[in-house]
Amino acid sequence: MILSAAIWVAMLVLCLAFLLTVWRVVKGPTLPDRVVALDMLVGIVIGFIALIAIRTGFTLYIDIAISLGLVGFLATVAFARFILASPAPEGEPPALLRPAIVTMAPPQARRKPGRKEKPDETVSNRRRKSR
């Protein structure tokens, strides 16, 4: 009786955690935020499967939980490779990848009036070159 009550309470808590994590998936400002939240969702679903296994007594659910964990791990690894292949979106350029010459040079050195206009080397151009 204690156990069934505890399982009910745990299911309610897991529902709350699930909703919070879904909120992060919806809101998450960047792609890696959503990937982290999806990884977390897999963990919560594994918790649900474990609770159902205790309730019903079917221990075969453990295998389902293990395979779901394997799928979640592989999905996270694949998403990590995808994030690695695509640079962060522009908008606020990361301080790490911003070329030092653009930030350090005084503005009049770049906009000298008599100077011939070279093709502007934008941040993304330099970043591509530095790769």
């Binding site: 204690i2 009550a5 505890a6 309470v9 745990a10 982290v36 977390m40």
Partner: peptide, 21 residues
């Protein structure tokens, strides 16, 4: 004991979800 473990796990998951937000 099993009920305690289940509740502890659920609380850990809830803490993780709160931290995620």
């Amino acid at each position: 004991a099993i009920a305690m473990i289940v509740l502890l796990g659920a609380l850990f998951v809830l803490a993780a979800a709160v931290g995620l937000n």
